[in-house]
Amino acid sequence: MFTVEKIFTQNTGIIWYPLLLVAIFLLLICILWIWGRYYFRNDYNKNTAQVKPFNSGNLDEINYPIRSGNLYWGFKKALESYFTFIESLHKGDLNDYMVWLFLSIGVVLLLVSGGLL
């Protein structure tokens, strides 16, 4: 019978045992927990500003999260020209949808029938 492990071993030597992976993960969690009990810091004062994230001195808890629209700003800025182009193709115009369908049918027909290749 086919097994995933066989396939993976044949191709790249990777052996994929998910249950073993989960067991190792749980073991690491246990080690970390025991390690933390003895060596992690526990000298902070609960329910004080010590346990709260430092937000450049801004104490406004309600409004400090970064808005979704501002996340990955740098990524979007670096690829601005790509996003300008790609967003211009997604304007929601039905005519565009049809043009792409007809264009695709034409190009694929030429390719499959041997007209271009």
Partner: peptide, 24 residues
């Protein structure tokens, strides 16, 4: 036959949401 293949496969790709016919 090849025309039939393309007329069937490309619209099905569109219904499946493949680019460049994914905008819907």
């Amino acid at each position: 036959d090849k025309m039939a293949l393309v007329f069937m496969l490309v619209p099905l790709a569109m219904k499946a949401g493949a680019i460049p016919m994914h905008m819907w």
